[in-house]
């Protein structure tokens, strides 16, 4: 019964984002293209953290598996972009299947530490195999490789407008995939696992298999974001595999509202501008304090946990709009 309202809201958000392309100055257009891709990462994270209730501290490895899967096939093997994109998703999903079979044997705090450690191994691996990954320094994809020729159509992803719409298309597709999952039987089983794992098992659901699926889908979406990031912005580096990129999606989802479909977008936009804006202001106010994202992210995390655990959309849903998916 709420389906109409929900679809309308999501279409409205997508239309708004499309409209922003005309309104925003070039700098903010670039920011929004980046934010939409990162929001896809956050939406992937949200499937596992928000809906299934599994707090992973290792999603950087899935994002960067997509990043490297797409970037390195383009750079080293000269593959076309669509194939490279799919390779990125495949790498992330395959890695998550392996990690899931191991890590999902643990629960709670142990799950967080195990995922964090596997992600650290992945990060160290990107440094260790520096011959191909170029480690810290990273790979810059030349502009000539970031083109698609498609029956007379010509897409150049180094062009800001093309990039914006490519990011928007990815965002829109993943948004509706998320909505579909949330409304499906599968999505309800995931929420049931989050609320009471034992009872869900007793009702006859295979908890392990459902969690594993949630992880693979979550990682696949995160990998899609990573692959898109590599192809749209043309840079692949081991920074994206570091602990920081496991914590950021958690922060974005917490801020926007865990287990809401649009929360990840809101959280990512706000956090991006908060860091951008505050580091500007603080750098001017106290020039020799070396302000970086560190302090802002730290304060935001603590304030969220203490005073605002449901996040923005979570609070709105609890107070006013029960129908929000």
């Amino acid at each position: 019964m709420n389906l109409g309202k929900q679809i309308f809201l999501h279409l409205l958000v997508i239309a708004l984002l499309a409209g922003l392309e005309y309104l925003l100055p070039v700098y903010h257009q670039g920011v929004f293209a980046r934010v939409m891709v990162l929001a896809v990462f956050a939406m992937g994270y949200n499937i596992l953290f928000g809906y299934t209730g599994l707090l992973s501290l290792g999603h950087a490895m899935f994002f960067s598996a997509g990043l490297y899967g797409a970037g390195m096939t383009v750079y080293h093997l000269d593959w076309g972009l669509p194939l490279a994109f799919l390779t990125g998703i495949f790498c992330a999903a395959a890695l998550s299947l392996l990690i899931g079979l191991l890590a999902l044997r643990t629960t709670g705090v142990a799950f967080m530490i195990v995922t964090m450690m596997f992600a650290q191994v992945f990060f160290l691996a990107t440094l260790y195999f520096g011959e191909w990954t170029r480690g810290d320094e990273g790979i810059v994809l030349p502009q000539a490789t970031r083109l698609i020729e498609f029956s007379g159509l010509h897409f150049d992803f180094s062009n800001p407008v093309t990039r914006y719409y490519a990011a928007l298309v990815l965002f829109a597709v993943v948004l509706f995939i998320t909505l579909g999952i949330v409304r499906s039987r599968f999505g309800r089983v995931l929420v049931a696992i989050r609320e009471n794992e034992e009872r869900t098992r007793m009702l006859g659901y295979n908890v392990f298999a459902n969690k594993l699926w949630a992880l693979v889908i979550s990682a696949g979406i995160s990998g899609a974001a990573g692959a898109a990031y590599a192809l749209l912005f043309g840079y692949v580096g081991s920074t994206f595999a570091s602990v920081q990129y496991s914590i950021l999606p958690l922060l974005w989802v917490l801020l926007g509202g865990a287990s809401t479909t649009l929360g990840p977008l809101i959280g990512t936009v706000l956090m991006y501008y908060l860091v951008d804006f505050s580091s500007d202001v603080l750098a001017r106010a106290v020039p020799d304090w070396n302000f970086s994202y560190l302090g802002v992210v730290g304060v935001a995390l603590i304030l969220l946990v203490l005073f605002f655990p449901k996040g923005i959309l979570g609070t709105i849903r609890a107070r006013w709009a029960r129908w929000l998916p």
Binding site: I247, L250, L254, F291, S292, L294, G295, V297, G298, V299, A300, L301, I302, L304, V305, L306
Partner: peptide
């Protein structure tokens, strides 16, 4: 989550 926040604040 809170101690991750603390980690960043101390680094800053």
């Amino acid at each position: 989550v809170a101690t991750i926040g603390l980690l960043y604040i101390l680094q800053q």
